[in-house]
Amino acid sequence: MPDILADLLLGIGILFTLAGSLGMLRFPDFYTRLHAAGVTETLGMIAIVTGLMLKTESSGTLVRLVFIGVFMLVTVPIASHALAKAARHGGVRPALREEE
């Protein structure tokens, strides 16, 4: 049972990893690509890491996976924000579509 759940989570992780990379290729400008990168790094990462957690019996492995997951959840938004802010100060204009 945990094995099926683990495979399911890994499958979800695969799907969102692909979605993020596809978005990185397809989306039109830097800021929109930033959102795409976030997909891989949040749900894709969470799903893969929890999937791996269900596949292990060793507590040391579990602790490391928890650390990787929590650390990435804390640093990913900081890196994204730093990139967005640096890009704006660097003069990259977002392509906007404000009209309704």
């Binding site: 929109t32 930033l34 795409a36 949040t42 990913v76 938004p77 924000h81 967005a84």
Partner: peptide, 28 residues
């Protein structure tokens, strides 16, 4: 707050000060 906004895909905090957050949103 700023980190939560960025962590949710579709919104990224670009600037954060005492009064406002400036956010880039992917869709309406």
């Amino acid at each position: 707050y700023g980190n939560s906004i960025t962590l949710t895909p579709g919104t990224v905090t670009v600037h954060l000060d005492d009064e406002e957050v400036e956010v880039h949103a992917l869709t309406r």
